[in-house]
Computed example of a mutant assay.
Amino acid sequence: MAHKTSTERRRERVRRQVRKVANGRPRLSVYRSGRHIYAQVIDDLAGRTVCAASSLEKDMRSSLKTGADTNAAAEVGKLVASRAKEAGVENVVFDRGSYRYHGRVKALADAAREGGLNF
């Protein structure tokens, strides 16, 4: 059996805590790559994605300088919040994955809160 990296262990630890406090709420999951940022609202009880947004989308790419800065993360946060509200989701639990709550991840979370998501 292969050993898990520290990133994998941290992701599992965060996910375990998120499941513990979720109480049936969907989770807002963030993935951050070197060039883009992605967010999706996942209903773990039903096992499906409610909505998603990323800096790769066509209208986002034309308006942003790059997909890898806090401005892009904030735009993605606003977009995922508006799509979640359209789908009838207001209360979520934030899943930062293996990333520190800092920089782009924090910008996305703050923008999602401003967009009307509660977490």
Rank of each mutant, 00 (worst) to 15 (best):
N71E: 13
S6N: 14
R27P: 10
G88S: 14
E86F: 00
R48E: 15
V89C: 09
R48M: 07
L28K: 08
A84V: 14
G24P: 04
S6Q: 13
E8L: 12
G34K: 04
G77K: 05
E86I: 11
K58F: 01
I37P: 07
P26M: 03
T49P: 06
Y38A: 09
R113N: 07
D110V: 10
F94T: 06
A87F: 07
S54E: 06
N91H: 14
T70A: 12
R48F: 06
V41R: 00
L56F: 03
H36E: 04
A111W: 03
K106N: 06
S29G: 02
V89R: 06
A72C: 11
R15Q: 12
P26A: 08
R11Q: 13
N118K: 15
A111Q: 07
A68F: 01
Q17P: 01
A84K: 11
K78M: 14
A112E: 02
N71Y: 00
K4I: 03
R32W: 02
R11F: 07
T49K: 10
L64W: 07
G115C: 08
H36N: 13
R48D: 13
V30T: 11
V80P: 08
R83D: 07
D44K: 05
V21L: 13
S82H: 13
T70M: 06
R25Q: 04
D95V: 04
R96T: 01
G103I: 03
S6I: 15
G88Q: 14
Q17N: 14
L117K: 06
Y99D: 05
D43I: 10
T66Y: 00
T5G: 14
Y99M: 06
V21Y: 01
E8R: 14
H3S: 14
R10K: 15
E90V: 15
D69S: 02
R100N: 05
S63A: 13
A52V: 11
Y31S: 06
K20W: 03
S55F: 05
V89K: 09
D110E: 14
D59F: 04
G67H: 06
V30F: 01
A112V: 13
V89T: 11
G77L: 02
L64N: 10
Y101W: 08
R11M: 07
S55P: 02
N91Y: 10
T70Q: 09
K58V: 03
S55Q: 08
